[in-house]
Design a protein around this nucleic acid. Structure first.
Lengths: 254, 254
DNA sequence: TCCGGCAGTTCCACTTAGTGGAATTTAGGG
DNA sequence: CCCTAAATTCCACTAAGTGGAACTGCCGGA
């Protein structure tokens, strides 16, 4: 009874290489081999070989005095390829920009990467209309935000519970109360189509799932800064969001 | 005389996995396994296993009816991490935005990915000042643009010739004349610090290398749309660019 | 409904390519 | 100039990955 490596689960070296890339979280400048080895739990020699490969393939740059590595420019090239290939972003992006302009608020589209939500696009409205900022790739925690909770609500039961298990494992602290909040938000989405969380002072955000079959689940959000969060305001935003979400769904199914 | 695999050149599976990711060029929506196999020259079974791994690690999503894969959201997460970790972009980015605003022109910062230039940031100035667009990750060919040629000029001889060899291999057509143009541009950069190419009608662009030691070579560019390219205009832009480049260098060496 | 034709996956004998611990080299820092 | 820490290389070992072939499932015609 022999077990064959090929064809069962993934390719180990590739998995590890990707894990190394992922060790570069936002804000991190350079990582040395031993630091990577520590974070990933790989043998130092293995890391040395894999980072070399990643440099050769152009995914990492060797930093100054070879004391470390940083992500290379080709990863943003990939990011651009992803965005420009995404049919969802391509159809919804323009709608988001128009909506942001019309309603004078921030509009975001995101989906999950493990337990983080990552923005495909986030259109930031600024009262000083001279600059409109569009950000992509920013990551925010799933459990804490309306965006993430709306995403969870859009997911099937099994995936959802898998993620919730991960939250438990990840954050030992703040567990019980937080998980209850999460379930409450999910229930709210199921009832009224959106949920609202104000996790930063003066910021009100509402979010709704965007489920199109055959595609990953997405979530849309709208938010306002420098306001006094209130139920009335949340309801108003929620109404806008629901209208916008259904417009998006319509545009996608054409 | 045995040759040991570990430790010599890179890890084969990882190399191949990355090559698969790279097969998703901008604008491509989905790729199926056999299409990938074709593009990369790998065995179909190998591709099947590697794509599975890439899905497990979150780099690819399975498209609708499993007829293909697309880049997953986590690649833009990586892109964001790269940008937010880049010390060069962090110090120069704000300067670029200010400069674009002040001079009313486009300002870009890029570096190479193989034979393409990829923008870390491209600040697009629009006369309708209500929108200023910032794009990252866009790729443009190195040989055809002032940006790419300035980059080449900033490179060491060996790297430069290696790239030029690649151009020859890549584009069979338009070789001789084009290569001469490239050398001419490089010479221009060496003489006056920048070069200028107008490869699209009505667009004038000037570019200069940005070399900071211990870091990859970058290139800065400035461009104007909807103008009649002329030597006088190019000289004016060039002067702005040189001033800006030296301001950047100063900011970086602090 | 049945039959190609095709894309994807699985099987499996083969062996190379990758692994990790130990030894070695390189680089600072005091 | 030595001493510590990090990175790299060495190498015996074999699990892990490979590719061709067989298999499965699907769609489009007729």
């Amino acid at each position: 009874m022999k077990i064959y490596a090929g064809g069962v689960d993934g390719n180990r070296s590739l998995e590890r290489g990707i894990e190394i890339l992922r060790a570069f979280r936002p804000g991190i400048d350079t990582l040395g081999n031993s630091e990577i080895a520590e974070r990933t739990g790989l043998a130092r020699s293995t890391v040395s070989r894999l980072t070399r490969t990643l440099v050769n393939t152009g995914m990492l740059d060797e930093a100054p005095d070879t004391k470390g590595y940083r992500l290379a420019a080709s990863v943003i090239g990939l990011g651009h390829a992803m965005r420009s290939g995404s049919p969802v972003l391509n159809t919804i992006g323009p709608l988001m920009r128009a909506e942001s302009f019309k309603r004078k608020l921030n509009v975001g589209l995101a989906t999950a990467d493990r337990t983080m939500m990552v923005y495909l696009e986030s259109v930031r409205y600024s009262p000083r209309a001279t600059l409109r900022n569009i950000v992509a790739g920013q990551q925010i925690p799933m459990e804490l935000t309306s965006l993430g909770r709306a995403y969870l609500a859009g997911l099937g039961k099994p995936e959802r519970t898998a993620l919730i298990t991960q939250f438990k494992r990840r954050t030992a602290a703040a567990t019980r109360a937080l998980l209850d909040e999460v379930s409450a938000s999910i229930a709210t989405v199921e009832r009224q189509g959106y949920c609202s969380v104000s996790w930063q002072r003066g910021v009100l955000a509402v979010a709704a799932p965007l489920v199109v079959d055959g595609l990953p689940v997405y979530a849309l959000n709208m938010s306002l800064q420098d306001v006094e969060p209130s139920d009335a305001l949340a309801a108003e935003l929620g109404a806008y969001l629901l209208a916008f979400a259904s417009k998006c769904k319509a545009a996608l199914s054409m």
